[in-house]
Design a protein around this nucleic acid. Structure first.
Lengths: 350, 350
DNA sequence: ATGAAAGCGCTAACAA
DNA sequence: TTGTTAGCGCTTTCAT
């Protein structure tokens, strides 16, 4: 007739206590670990625990002050290879540090993002990691700033990972990787091969990651005294299909170029297929380069020259940095380097 | 001198109550939604909430009986494209249904998996979804059975997704997809092209997914009265590197075959590169097929013939099925179909 | 319509 | 070494 008997299984610490003939605190102490308990009682308690298959309710522990800390990871789409790698880094590091790891895909919807962050605030997550570039509008800064403040107000922390920083004073940790630098180096490499008309398959015009890579493309040209033809700057998004479509159109439009630099490896993959479909040889007729160094880059044919970004490390670092701070820690802003991986898809201009 | 003043931000429902000059219950009622509250009070409370930027502690709500339900997703490695798609499906459906979504990568470590499931039991997760094939040993069944029971005992539910079922009586939901059938159809397609010596690049010999696909390979041969040469059955794992290595060795060893079927698209990608490195043309010299239909399959050159698996749908279904049940629901066991996607990497035998 | 009090499952300070 | 009591932050009777 006890509560337990009708609600089989959901045993509480009191059920265990009763069964072991001790008080709830004693059970708590036995389970808690380091605390003096006679080995006789300990045995009895443990037996009761086993018999009831008892596990303490983590939520109750949490509000009593001894919860498993949680960490949240917010991205647009876990399906993108680079995001997946970051997610992996985050998840690995979080569990290593004894944290639970919540995920949320926003599908690029700011409202969804906002709601989720609010939930995380309610969950008292130790940190919320926002991943991936976005349009850097005043509205963005404002909204994000608000999230940062409200998280900070409950002792949590906002981390911006590969996402535009907010300017001074915002309680955020930002971890970036050098998109412009990577693109600069990559395009410099292409130019070194003698190419002068390099098509750029970019992302959304207002997307920070896309912008930074485009900036690198431009800078590399200008550093060699070349003013790139604006007609060679195409915009789409970071998907494979975008690359395919843009490339096909460029060919059909009779655009002249001897090399193409894609904003991501996904874009490059689509572009490569379009090039093949047009009967063009890479790098014989046209050179091609990507960005991100996803695992598949090696298996494209020809193997793709690209820029390596330490995504997994980025994720790990985000977690470590966010979790390693004390209230006195100044706001960090890290910038990770990238490097060009030369493979077979870029050759000398013919 | 209130608690709040020194512990800025972490305001509780009582802080709000005080500030609004009402009782905590009233605040709870206002926030709770549908309950008669004078609009004057409501306004005062809402103002206090805003001023304090208050959010109710989700954990406290949970133990009081009104928590946000949670759902856990356990896989080997989020980095694998097919896993990522399942994860996406799970996450999407979970949020659609108002659930939070926890993730854990086990890196294939059973102990890690066990620990995580125990944590989820403590969290009172609504369901725990275990993803991906594994060695189907008695030890596995035993361990998993135990997890299923212990989850059930706290009102949670174990879901096996693309993972071997446990036999009757276990409180689990299992969602599978037809690995054997898909492989059968794929290999039948290859045989139809006249190939008689088809190399199979398999996974770990005791991995269920690998076994099922291998079984399909075998069955398709036998259905045509062909007894496949055991020397053509190679084992590795599901990675790109495994495919590359296996393929290279097979070529070096002078193995004779006119087509190769890889256990996954990743394996196929590695194999393709090895084929190219050996100067072999696909499908001119050798035909090649994969399994999974990851997005990149289209961009391999030639575009990869493969088996489409509805991974995202699988994830969504797992969530819907697990969450949609009542204690009376019989244990479901769903089997999703797959289909061959014919592209350019398989051609007639030369 | 609102407040006081009890309770959710746990831990910790205080006694014994 | 162990039990009693008082919280943790919230919801929900039960009164009023």
């Amino acid at each position: 007739m006890t509560r337990k008997s009708e609600d089989a299984g959901r045993s509480t610490i009191r059920d265990v206590a009763t069964r072991a003939g001790v008080s709830a605190s004693t059970v708590s102490r036995v389970l808690g670990g380091a605390y003096p308990v006679s080995s006789a009682t300990r045995t009895r308690v443990m037996r009761a625990v086993r018999e009831l298959d008892y596990v303490a309710d983590a939520r109750a522990k949490a509000i009593a002050g001894v919860g498993t800390p949680t960490l949240a990871f917010v991205l647009e789409d876990i399906t993108g290879p680079s995001f997946a790698h970051m997610a992996h880094g985050v998840e690995r590091e979080a569990t290593r540090l004894g944290h639970l790891c919540l995920v949320c895909s926003t599908e690029g919807d700011a409202r969804h993002e906002l709601e989720f962050v609010e939930m995380m605030r309610a969950q008292r997550a130790a940190a919320v990691i926002l991943v991936g570039g976005t349009a850097d509008t005043p509205e963005y800064r404002d909204r994000t700033r608000r999230m940062a403040d409200s998280l900070a107000s409950v002792g949590s922390r906002l981390v911006l990972c590969g996402r535009p920083p907010l300017g001074p004073g915002a309680p955020v940790t930002v971890i970036e990787y050098d998109n412009e630098g990577g693109a600069y180096a990559l395009v410099a490499h292409v130019l070194t091969q003698g190419h002068r008309r390099v098509l750029f398959l970019g992302g959304k015009p207002d997307h920070t990651t896309a912008q930074d890579r485009e900036r690198g493309y431009l800078a590399a040209h200008r550093a060699r005294g070349i003013e790139p033809d604006p007609a060679l700057l195409l915009h789409g998004d970071f998907t494979r299909d975008s690359g395919h479509r843009l490339m096909r159109r460029a060919i059909e439009a009779g655009l002249e170029f001897t090399a193409v630099v894609a904003a991501t490896d996904m874009v490059a993959a689509g572009a490569l297929t379009a090039l093949h479909e047009a009967g063009l040889d890479v790098p014989g007729d046209i050179s091609l380069a990507g960005y991100d160094d996803i695992p598949f880059a090696r298996d494209l044919h020809p193997a793709l020259t690209t820029v390596h970004v330490p995504y997994e490390e980025l994720g790990r670092l985000a977690v470590r940095t966010a979790l390693g701070r004390t209230p006195e820690t100044p706001d960090e802003h890290l910038l990770l380097g990238t490097h060009v991986v030369v493979r077979d898809s870029v050759g000398p201009v013919s």
